Simulated scan of single mutants.
Amino acid sequence: MSMKLSPPTRVSDPAISGAAQSHAAPRRPSPLLRSLWRKRFYLLLVVLPTLIAGIYFYGFAAGQYVSEARYLVRGRQDSRGASSLTEMMGAAGFKQVSEESLSVRDYLQSHDALHALKEGIDIVGLYRRPEADLLGRLWFADPPDEILKMYHGMMNTVVNDSTSGITTLRARAFRPEDAQRIAEEQLRLAELFVNHLSARSREESLRSARDELERAEQRVLASQAAITEWRLREQSVDPTGNAQIGMEGLGALEGALTGARAELQEKSSFMRPDNPQIVTIRNRIASLQREIAEQRRRMTHDGALPGQLATYERLALEREFANKQLASATLSLETARLDAQRQQIFLARVVEPNLADYPLYPRAAVTLLSIFIVLSVLYGIGWMMLAGIREHAF
């Protein structure tokens, strides 16, 4: 029995060579897949979050309308109290923002203003409208004050312009009428706060003037009582007048003494010393001298009259100062009353809250570009740090 031998296989056989090549060299991926694989971390950490944010902003985010209002806080200011630096800044176009304007801004950003806003309008309900998206709306139906203040501060801005002194208030909401209502309510609260500041300023001015007048009246009464007590104690109504009368009497006596001495000298020139007229004149001179000495002794006895004069003049000077203080305090009170009749601080509306026609927020393009740039920068920093670590490791 004979066997047939199969023909020998050759390496050049197409079927065998194809199978061998398929097992030896697998198919390689396309260049696009290789490029995406090399950039997988960049795509995952930068492109994917930006894409998700874009889907949210353009597909789900609700529009937010903005209502803008502007106001100016004015008050009576004394230009004489302005410093030269303030005048130079004003000439250069810079206007100093008043303390009242900054106070109003801080009040609108405070818990007190938020509580007053909650009492005036349903601020929580306005921030939880049905058309609001899940991420942009206020998440809590009864939020804590801190959460509500944080969200309200994100949806509202109050900015002072140092050049014009005008304050710009912007309120955001998911409906244009809601934004306008929030801005209007905040303006109303700002006006109430300014009126309160003005009332307190007027009350403080009047209270200070009344206190000064009361102190002046008490000083006048005390000085008058001191003079009355002195008069009763010294049994003298006006020691200054008494001293004036005494000085006038002493002057008259000294004048008579001078005249008598002149007459004696004149008659002694042609009369004998024992002449009765000469004796009479000498007796009159001696009497005048004794009277003058007695008058001087009474005026300066134990220093009583000079001491009385010093005490009385001090009391009279105190009464004069008290009367001047009383007159000045009365004038200050009248001035304060005139100032209190008009409002010292007031809020002037420059621009009323508008009703928006188009939602300005969220600014999708700007936000997406910012997200992409920030993530790219962070990715670049991380890649450089990782490359440095690998380089030092090997």
Rank of each mutant, 00 (worst) to 15 (best):
A53S: 11
G18Q: 13
L36C: 13
T86S: 06
Y65C: 02
R70I: 04
A61M: 01
R27P: 10
L85V: 12
K39G: 11
Y56V: 01
S98V: 06
A69W: 05
Y65F: 15
Q64N: 07
R10N: 14
P7W: 13
D13Q: 10
Q64V: 10
F57K: 07
K95F: 09
S6M: 10
L48M: 15
S35L: 11
R76Y: 08
E87Y: 06
E99R: 14
A15H: 14
S12L: 00
V73N: 02
A19R: 08
K95A: 13
K39S: 12
P7D: 14
L32D: 12
G18L: 12
G54H: 07
I16K: 05
T9D: 12
L45W: 00
K95W: 09
P7G: 13
A91Y: 04
P26C: 11
R10T: 15
I52E: 02
V73K: 02
P29W: 10
S103T: 14
A82H: 14
Q96A: 13
V66G: 00
R70L: 01
P7C: 11
R10Q: 13
L72I: 11
L72T: 04
G63E: 04
G93C: 05
A19T: 11
R105G: 10
V46M: 01
V97C: 02
S22V: 01
L32V: 15
G54S: 14
R76M: 04
V104C: 12
S83T: 15
I55E: 02
F60D: 03
S12G: 11
A91D: 06
L51S: 07
L102M: 12
G54A: 15
F60R: 01
S84W: 06
T86I: 01
V97Q: 06
V11M: 13
A15E: 10
L32I: 15
Q96R: 12
G59K: 00
R27E: 12
L32M: 08
S6C: 07
D13G: 01
A91I: 02
R105H: 05
P29R: 06
R70P: 03
A69K: 03
T86H: 02
G75I: 04
L33V: 13
Y56G: 03
G81M: 14
Q77N: 03
P31D: 07
S67A: 07
T9W: 13
L102F: 10
D78F: 12
R34A: 07
T86M: 02
A61G: 02
K95D: 05
